[in-house]
């Protein structure tokens, strides 16, 4: 018990929570935006992998960190165009199309990485983002190292969550997006172009997913290796349901999730030899399933989610 208390009282835990949460926040926001417009985006896992790879590769080849971040976002957007073409223009099964995008984006990442980076014993590294020094805050006792010693993308992710909430619920554009997700035919009768809205939401969402991946290689770690995304994309999809498609709750959900993950990471060494480490590693996935089971029935799903929109066809 005292171990648990020590863990909760350490600034390191809270810093880790924010760090673990960042890719989840960005990924969940991306999936949420897409689903709000009515498109389930299972391409997320692959787009995160590609973002992690291409962002790292850009920096490895001399670009600065923000350029790498931007490259990852643009690459994500490109896959978003692909997913939108399949699901919006052609109206294909969003499940299968998304899985196809994930399979393609991840295998393509490995291919490009293997082609451009020679095999080496230790993977090549870059210098990742350093924690920002915020005057007056970072130097605070406990709170400074716990909450204000993050890298810039973490703050960006939190701002993005607030911004997306604002756009979705306080602007005409947000109303148009939500309306397209609820009833594209009604949206069209109001002069909204559902196809354009869906394209925009999927592409912007995919850009966020690309950034989520880039955070892994440009801030959390400093190198790329296959399978590094480790199901984070699927966890984000679960978090979207958990958040009832609300950006603010998505932020809280990601933080809560990262909190459990951070605690289990720190409990692991304390219980080493008593409890197999694999049981700890299962926790994030089991938590996601539990969150889905609890929230799925209570959540208000966008009514037109997974329904292709074809003008004049019901």
């Amino acid at each position: 018990m005292s171990t648990l208390f020590d863990i909760l009282a350490s600034a390191g835990l809270w810093a880790a929570v924010l760090r673990i949460a960042t890719p989840l926040i960005l990924g969940t926001l991306g999936a949420l935006l897409s689903e709000r417009a009515g498109v389930l985006h299972l391409g997320i896992e692959g787009i995160m992998t590609f973002g992690a790879m291409i962002g790292w590769l850009a920096v490895y080849n001399g670009a600065d960190l923000w350029t790498g971040f931007l490259v990852a976002a643009l690459a994500g957007a490109a896959f978003g165009v692909l997913h939108a073409m399949l699901t919006v223009t052609l109206g294909l099964s969003q499940h299968v199309a998304g899985l196809g995008v994930t399979l393609f984006a991840s295998s393509f990442s490995y291919y490009v990485f293997r082609m451009l980076v020679p095999v080496a014993g230790t993977p090549p590294t870059i210098t990742p983002f350093q924690p920002l020094d915020i005057p007056g805050l970072t130097s605070l006792p406990f709170f400074g190292p716990a909450f204000f010693a993050q890298t810039a993308p973490t703050y960006l992710a939190i701002i993005a969550a607030l911004l997306l909430g604002l756009v979705l619920f306080r602007t005409p554009l947000g109303l148009a997006i939500r309306m397209t997700g609820e009833n594209p035919h009604a949206a069209e009768s109001q002069g909204i172009n559902p196809v354009a809205i869906r394209y925009g939401a999927v592409i912007a969402g995919s850009a966020l997913m690309g950034m989520a991946g880039a955070f892994l290689t440009l801030s959390a770690f400093n190198s790329f290796f296959p399978t590094m995304v480790q199901g984070r994309g699927w966890i984000c999809i679960a978090l979207v349901v958990f958040s009832s498609w609300r950006p603010g709750r998505a932020l809280l959900g990601a933080l809560l999730f990262a909190f459990f993950d951070g605690v289990q990471l720190r409990l692991q060494p304390a219980l080493n030899g008593i409890v197999p480490y694999q049981l700890f590693l299962m926790i994030p996935y089991l938590l996601s399933i539990a969150a889905l089971a609890i929230m799925a029935r209570r959540a208000r799903v966008p009514q037109a989610l997974m329904q292709p929109y074809r003008r004049g066809e019901r």
């Binding site: 199901g231 996601s288 089971a293 799925a296 029935r297």
Partner: peptide
């Protein structure tokens, strides 16, 4: 519980 099995089977 009407949980989408795509995500749960993936997570499992």
């Amino acid at each position: 519980f009407q949980v989408d099995e795509v995500v749960t089977t993936l997570l499992l």
